[in-house]
Amino acid sequence: MRTVTRRNAGRLEAQDGTQNGAIEPAWAGTPVRPSAHRRLASHRLAAIGRSRWFVVAAGLVAVLSGTALVLAMWSSSATEAGGVITTGELKAIAGTFEWAETTPDVASTARQSGTDTASLAQFHAMPGDSLEIRQGVEVKGSGENLRFDVEASWSGGSNAAISPLEAEYVVTNSAGQILAGGPSGVSLGTPVQIEGLTEGQHELFVVVTLTYPASSDLVYQASAGSSSQVASLPVLNFAAQQVRETS
């Protein structure tokens, strides 16, 4: 709730739209009548010369008092329910995660896939294999005359961090259209930026393509058992920044 006070000359409307009608003025001037003092002074006017200035001053007071009536102010107040001031918002949240094998020499029915990082860690990439990892990011921005930019970057590593695998990535929209990094992708660790997204909600995907070159040497284990070597992707940082759009 907030109180709104409005001063008008002669009439007051409450903020909630109802008319108060003729509200009694908070203060209203009363016409000044000639006083007894004034009548007595007129009889002595000829005898007392400096009394003329007093009469002039009294007349000015009377004129000024009349003017004050014209400038009378109205004051009132009304209370209304507080409105929400929308100043815009920006959110970026991690969306779905999925991965799928794209190894060319493996039949599509034999390719592996998953929807969580645990299943991806269980996949054992061998020379000749390739994978596609999709990390969804939902970005929502609102506000007048606003647009927003997004940037995908990686901290703590690059392609060297996932050796012997190689990686490239792009940022796409939900329709698969490449918005940044295309057409062939950029190396892991290289930041990309998408500028000028319009207001609203956008579902973006950071699509990482992992490749284990077929020409790579096999990694031999010294003893039997499960493989312990893993290639960890660097941390994906996704930043959305809303900017004032001017023309």
Binding site: G88, L90, L210, A231, N237, A240, R244
Partner: peptide, 29 residues
Amino acid sequence: AGSAGAAWALWRSEISVSGASVGVGQVYV
């Protein structure tokens, strides 16, 4: 700045996604 197309940041939101790793296959003979 207001009339020449300049832009300045208003809000910024960031997320970090980590934890994805891939097993590197090996052979044993």
